[in-house]
Design a protein around this nucleic acid. Structure first.
Lengths: 216, 216
DNA sequence: GCCAATCTGGTAGTTACTATCACCAAGGTA
DNA sequence: TACCTTGGTGATAGTAACTACCAGATTGGC
């Protein structure tokens, strides 16, 4: 079996996924999420409802599926253990956001950002999407804690990591909402940095050498 | 019309709600949330499925409905505007948690806490419940910001309040999860205080010019 | 060209939820 | 007591998100 992702099958699979998701986000934006059935999406994409469910387990996944979690976890694992927790996590969140907004795969860089904004607006305004998105952020929180590699035998250390990760993600989420309300006019990484500074103040802005506390 | 809540109708209504929710949480815990249908709950409670939907708009509400949000918002509104944000919000969260765990309406005080624990365990382990619970926390975040009464004409001030509220709630949620994992053996208010301290350090523990707080 | 793996589509469910109807008890009024 | 409005309850029928389960078509390695 060729582990390359460039086999014809894999390329077709990725392409149909892209097409289905694009039509889904467009229809949801035009007619509303609840007013659009999965069958509508399937018809628009030129496939059967069954195929939609094959690629996206739930209707919500048509909007929520992305690579953000993977990006963040990789950045966390690559970050220096010497830095304070909020700085490690916050830095990874900012860097990942920069990658996402810059657009990853050529073509039209602005199109990627517009698509991201459209998805984000849906995630914020539609209760079902908002709920599942928040749950995926909760999953990301656990992934972050795992990626920190604290070898946390001490329950207090583990608790500290959980708190730091959840608070950082909450701050980022607030920045995301603000970014969407602003129609993406502000730079997202800057907004996230601002949110983290608002939450943690010096603990986030000042790196390791700071006068502030290297506390428990 | 008698605005008292003690009319026969209101009492019966509250009682049926209580009975339905109790049977629901019991069945969900015994058989699992997904494996239990709304009809099962209705049968156990001795009512029709329609009646269940009259009292609880969705299946998730059978577990999620509670008074926590109202408690927190009231405490926030009653807190001193002079205090820093995280302290106002954190204080309200701790005080509300104390009220919830102490049990509010007589009878068996430990029963209230056991019921709360059972609900919380379901909220954490069942994806659908977890997602909607997180979404209700997001709604609580906006309620908190409103209750702060900042008259935030300045968008930066509003942003700061959003960030503070979301980060505090994230810390509280981490404490809730820990509390459930611990089967409620630790005092919940203490856990929340610990989480807030872990997240914000001195910003939370040290009040405006005050000495350190009597924490554990 | 051949076989296994995969993609796709159709049918027939289950279940959460909604809309609409009629029935009956609660509670204030004559 | 008799009446009548209000609101809780229940049955029926319908929508839509899924979930097996089965059958045909296409790809990719031999």
């Amino acid at each position: 079996m060729p582990d390359q992702h460039t086999t014809l099958r894999a390329r077709r699979r990725a392409e149909t996924q892209r097409v289905i998701q694009a039509h889904a986000v467009r229809l949801f934006t035009e007619r509303g999420y609840d007013a659009t059935t999965v069958t509508d999406v399937a018809d628009a994409a030129g496939v059967s409802p069954m195929t939609v469910y094959r690629h996206f387990p739930t209707k919500e996944d048509l909007v929520l599926v992305d690579q953000h979690g993977r990006l963040v976890a990789e950045r966390i694992a690559a970050s220096s253990v010497a830095q304070p927790l909020v700085r490690r996590i916050g830095g990874a969140l900012i860097a990942s956001a920069a990658m996402l907004t810059r657009g990853d795969h050529g073509d039209d860089p602005a199109a990627d950002e517009r698509f991201l904004l459209a998805r984000l607006r849906l995630m914020i305004s539609t209760p079902a999407l908002r709920a599942k998105h928040l749950d995926s952020q909760y999953a990301l929180q656990r992934a972050i804690v795992d990626a920190l590699e604290d070898d946390a035998t001490d329950p207090d250390t583990a608790f500290h990591a959980q708190v730091a990760a959840s608070a950082c993600l909450a701050a980022m989420h607030t920045a995301l909402v603000r970014w969407a309300e602003d129609d993406g006019r502000t730079e997202l990484p800057d907004l996230i940095a601002k949110a983290l500074t608002a939450a943690f103040g010096d603990d986030f802005t000042e790196p390791t050498g700071g006068v502030s506390t290297p506390r428990r």
